[in-house]
């Protein structure tokens, strides 16, 4: 059997994957598919979470998390230097908790030793307040705004919804995409969760303003905290994509536009 030299032409490259164009095509298809899958997963998890949270009544939340106390709290001892602010904070909470929009949990305040001005809504009705917040806030209305904001989180069940989404979505993304090389998906998931968190914050701001108007009949100085935060942070707009809270300036703007 003689060998005759023949050129197969283009078909010699049948199995070579299509070159750079093939790679780019694969990249585009896969990116689209991944984005689609992430969106479907996210909304699926969000739906399930909201369903589950709707199933946990406020009453049950009180029973489940009532005794839940964060380990970071410094305890019931309030340092002397904060005694005055603390008393004011307690009275503000007392006033606001009678607002009809506020859900009936056994609210209590805990102090957290932390220089960053911040407050937290912790399942069960605990409101964590950092010492940095007490240092920076002056007057009743600014404090009432912060407490109202946290009460808004409780009323919207944000602490449960956020937690559910975070846990559910992270697990779903890990199960579907695996935890190896594709850590890109977990970064994407993080961005999606952050965007939800910022939406929650804006809604909680609105709730706080309604509380102030109903209880105090005024809201001058409500944005004091944002003014302080805005001075300490000077970030470009796009940087807030990576943040749990919206831009302080944008929050101030929203407050002044909607509640003139």
């Amino acid at each position: 059997m003689k060998y005759v030299q023949r050129d197969p032409g283009q078909s010699a490259e049948n199995s070579s994957g299509g070159g750079t164009r093939g790679t780019l095509r694969e990249l585009l298809t896969l990116t689209a598919l991944v984005c689609l899958a992430m969106t479907v997963l996210y909304f699926g998890i969000a739906f399930l979470t909201d369903l589950a949270v709707a199933g946990i009544s406020v009453d049950r939340e009180r029973r489940m998390f009532g005794g839940f106390s964060p380990a970071i709290a410094t305890g019931s001892e309030i340092p002397e230097q904060y005694a005055e602010e603390w008393a004011l904070l307690e009275s503000v909470l007392g006033k606001l908790s009678h607002h009809p929009g506020v859900v009936a949990l056994d609210y209590r305040l805990v102090l957290m030793a932390e220089d960053e001005p911040n407050a937290f809504a912790i399942p069960g009705g605990t409101i964590g307040v950092t010492s940095g917040l007490l240092d920076s806030l002056e007057g009743e209305i600014p404090m009432a705004f912060v407490i109202g904001h946290e009460l808004g989180h409780f009323a919207h069940r944000d602490h449960l919804k956020g937690m559910g989404r975070r846990i559910g979505f992270s697990i779903a993304v890990r199960v579907v995409f695996g935890g190896g090389i594709d850590s890109m998906t977990s970064k994407g998931a993080e961005l999606m969760l952050l965007s939800y968190s910022r939406k929650q914050e804006t809604l909680a701001d609105a709730f706080a303003m309604e509380c102030l108007d109903a209880v105090y009949g005024r809201h001058d100085g409500a944005g004091q905290l944002f003014e302080i935060l805005d001075q300490s942070a000077d970030l470009p707009d796009w940087a807030y994509m990576f943040s749990t809270h919206p831009d302080s300036q944008a929050r101030l703007r929203l407050l002044s536009e909607k509640w003139r």
């Binding site: 059997m1 060998y3 197969p8 579907v176």
Partner: peptide, 19 residues
């Protein structure tokens, strides 16, 4: 009856299963 041959021919493909 084989008259002549033209050498090696081959084809390959790689497939992944879906989830």
């Amino acid at each position: 009856n084989i008259v002549e041959h033209y050498g090696l021919v081959s084809g390959n493909t790689v497939r992944a299963k879906n989830i």
